[in-house]
């Protein structure tokens, strides 16, 4: 139990995917303008990241390593993620229409979200066991959620601020992100 908490909290706070690993910056800056969109996107990311960690671990262990095909990892993983996203989309559309309505438009964007492929690659690099890999994917997704929601709140406030002309839009958002990142830096060495 203790180990589970350490992995999940570590992935959320210490190794936050967005703020200390720089994975998934594009959706972080693109979707964080409205709180509602941020919640929808992060829901979809948590879901796909957990599933992708599980599926790629199995494929890596049962197929690629067994037949010495590990140089195909990059190609195999991105195809797995792309088809997984499609699959999740179809399943949700058929069986859970309300959830599909909420997450639908965000799902196709996830294929090129580097947080998902990043989590999968980190799992392989660190040679996690199956359970750890799934937990790490889940925790990473939650970390992404936390960063996105925190930042969406800050950006809604920034909209009403009188910012120097050259800093309007993305530059001031990036500087705000730097400050949030400094805050997260305090968690370094927590475990």
């Amino acid at each position: 139990m203790r180990e589970i908490i350490v992995i999940i909290m570590g992935a959320i706070l210490v190794e936050n995917f967005v703020l200390s690993k720089f994975l998934g910056i594009c959706p972080f800056l693109g979707i964080s303008k409205k709180l509602g969109n941020a919640v929808g996107m992060s829901g979809a990311v948590v879901f796909v990241m957990t599933a992708a960690s599980a599926v790629t671990w199995l494929i890596n262990d049962l197929l690629l390593l067994k037949y010495n095909l590990d140089y195909l990892q990059t190609v195999a993983f991105i195809l797995v993620i792309a088809s997984l996203v499609q699959f999740v989309e179809i399943i949700l559309k058929k069986f859970v229409p309300p959830l599909y309505k909420a997450l639908g438009i965000y799902l196709p964007l996830i294929t090129t979200n580097c947080a998902v492929l990043g989590a999968v690659l980190l799992n392989m690099e660190r040679e996690y066991t199956f359970g750890r890999a799934v937990l790490f994917g889940f925790g990473g997704g939650l970390g992404f959620t936390l960063a996105l929601i925190l930042f969406a709140g800050i950006r809604e406030k920034l909209e009403n601020c009188n910012v120097p002309h050259a800093f309007r839009g993305l530059p001031i958002s990036l500087i705000a992100a730097a400050l949030v990142s400094v805050a997260f830096f305090g968690f370094q060495g927590l475990f």
Partner: peptide, 24 residues
């Protein structure tokens, strides 16, 4: 701090602002 993660956001934000200033 500039070579730690927060510095990445900070440097990029300032470089973009300078680019905006120059191109405007």
């Amino acid at each position: 701090i500039m070579i730690l993660p927060p510095g990445g956001f900070l440097a990029f934000g300032f470089i973009m602002a300078i680019m905006n200033k120059l191109t405007n």
